[in-house]
Nucleic acid binder design. Sequence first.
DNA 1: GGAAGTATAGGGGAAAACCCTCATTTTCTA
DNA 2: TAGAAAATGAGGGTTTTCCCCTATACTTCC
Lengths: 216, 216
Amino acid sequence: MDTRILIADDHSMFADGIESILNEQEGIQVVGKCYDGASILPYLKKNEIDIILLDVNLPEKNGIEVCKEVIAAFPEMKILAISMFNQESYVTEILKNGAKGYILKNTGREELMQAIQTVTEGNTFFSKDVTQTIMRGLMNERKGGTPSKGFIPKITRREKEVLKLIVQEYTTQEIGEKLFISLKTVESHRSSLLAKVSVRNTAGLVRKAIEHKLLD
Amino acid sequence: MDTRILIADDHSMFADGIESILNEQEGIQVVGKCYDGASILPYLKKNEIDIILLDVNLPEKNGIEVCKEVIAAFPEMKILAISMFNQESYVTEILKNGAKGYILKNTGREELMQAIQTVTEGNTFFSKDVTQTIMRGLMNERKGGTPSKGFIPKITRREKEVLKLIVQEYTTQEIGEKLFISLKTVESHRSSLLAKVSVRNTAGLVRKAIEHKLLD
DNA sequence: GGAAGTATAGGGGAAAACCCTCATTTTCTA
DNA sequence: TAGAAAATGAGGGTTTTCCCCTATACTTCC
């Protein structure tokens, strides 16, 4: 029986490409594609799938949340995470939530095949680069003593508005004028944002906003 | 005779995927792939190519520079730009430099085929989203009167070091300590960076740094 | 029908970023 | 090897961000 694969990535050109690569292979069959996080769980309820290739950085509902939900509903599901970013918080977080592997988008096709096979068999696969990241993460782990989180906050509607304007280079003053609220209110939102995404300053805020696709 | 295609993208999984899609098609043949900007021109000198699928956001030497060089050496070369970002400055700039089309990575395979065919025939193709962006750009154009640039700077070695640390949330003070230079020197570099990428503040700097892959 | 969460807003202060001008040394490169 | 570009640094100022604290009105959810 073929290994049945679901591809979940919001870039359809990428998803189509992977599909095309995989369908050339023996014993593998791409049976579905999802272009956003929300449609994955409904799909799984109607179709038999062996392994999900899951983009970590999905818009709306991100890959980590999706992963958690999927594992909750289908504890045996094999999930191979795929991402542009080789960042420790992503890797550890999605693994905590049940993913069985993590590869980067600059992975070649042989390695991709190997990863799929490994995960399908119930084992775990990491790209070489990712392994290094994890190791580096483990090194730095328990030293500051921080509970070591580093991700998914829940941004409110208003905070997101403010965040978008920050990324567009507006100052706090200007944001207040645009949204018809006081400078102090904007400052409050900024503070919450810094705390929620756990960064020190605007630079980190903008970086995480982009990496975590907080701007849709 | 088949249309001979060169794919230039640093994410090999993506490049492989596109290759796989295209090789399924009649009359099309992917004859090469480049994973960075520097290897494109040498490749073209040794191989006959009809059309290049060029990622705008290549590391090291970006897509726009590559495009310029390629057109300088091969004025008749057909270039179809592909990007994650639907941003006006990218679109207009790469078109100025000789690209014949611009599509996003969330483009489906039918549209991709259509784009390739269109461009190969010497015509111009834009994704629907991109067309809107261009229109919006034209609207806002000649009103501030700015010479309307909006991009490619040449970041020096030291500036890049500083930039990386900024993105990693270090303050000017800390950057100075890390690089063993004075706070004032770091400020100088920050100023140059703001000017070169033409943004107002750190938020814009970080955004552009990521979008333009200034951090490799 | 409270409790939790969100949006609002203020005071006050410290730190950081931003801006301008200028000058010296080092390093590339034509 | 001379000039350009890059890296260094300073003085002195303004603006913005960040960080405490507190506090009220409104929504939403259990």
